[in-house]
Amino acid sequence: MRFTPAAIALSMLAAVTSSAVIGADYEPDQRAAALIAEGHAQLEAGDTQAAIDSFEAALTIDPGYTPIYLNLAEAARRENLQGKAIHYYRAAQERDPENIAAISGEGEALAEKGAMESARRNLTRLEELCGNSCEEATQLAAAIDRGPIQPVITAEAISSDSGVTQN
């Protein structure tokens, strides 16, 4: 009984200290940071697959660093792999549920894929978090207005007309 006030005080101190540590900015591992920088350079150079490889290697080194998921999602979108991008955006949101970039990116990928109702839900969520005028909300609204990406049709995908005869 006589240790109860001291125990309560120590537990409160531990709770305050631990929450301050949790809220601190997370710095990536140095090796992962180098791979992320390399991936950004490759992405800017147009080598999307090499950028994806660099980002995946960085993710292997430091799986707790949320921006890697956002980088992977952006690279996947540039490869027109919206489903894969949505997966990465959702992984980022699992780690940080109010990550505005992840919510916006997922909404844009959903709009590009044609899931307009889901994209509008993301827009509503963004507007609740940052308002109508934040950059992410305006980008998502523009993506919804553009609509889905039209798939590229190759010559092999078009069947030939069997009515053609040889003379």
Rank of each mutant, 00 (worst) to 15 (best):
M1Q: 14
M1A: 15
R2H: 13
R2P: 10
F3Y: 14
T4A: 15
A6T: 12
A7M: 11
I8T: 08
A9H: 06
S11I: 11
M12W: 09
L13K: 08
A14I: 15
A15R: 04
T17D: 10
S19H: 10
A20K: 13
A20V: 12
A20M: 15
V21M: 11
G23V: 10
D25S: 11
E27V: 14
E27R: 14
E27C: 09
E27W: 09
Q30A: 15
E38K: 08
A41T: 11
A45M: 10
D47Y: 05
D47N: 12
Q49D: 15
Q49G: 08
A51P: 01
I52S: 01
S54G: 05
S54I: 05
E56Y: 07
A58S: 05
T60P: 06
T60K: 10
I61Y: 05
D62A: 04
P63C: 07
Y65M: 05
Y69G: 02
Y69K: 06
A75S: 03
A76I: 01
A76P: 02
K84R: 15
I86H: 00
Q93N: 08
E94T: 15
P97R: 07
E98V: 13
N99S: 09
A102C: 03
E112I: 08
G114Q: 04
M116L: 13
E117F: 05
E117A: 09
A119S: 02
L126G: 01
E128N: 10
N132I: 10
N132C: 08
N132P: 13
S133W: 11
C134P: 02
A137K: 01
T138H: 08
Q139T: 13
A141N: 07
A142P: 05
I144Y: 01
I144A: 01
D145P: 06
I149Y: 07
I149S: 12
V152T: 14
V152H: 11
A157M: 14
I158L: 15
S162W: 09
S162G: 09
V164W: 12
N167V: 12
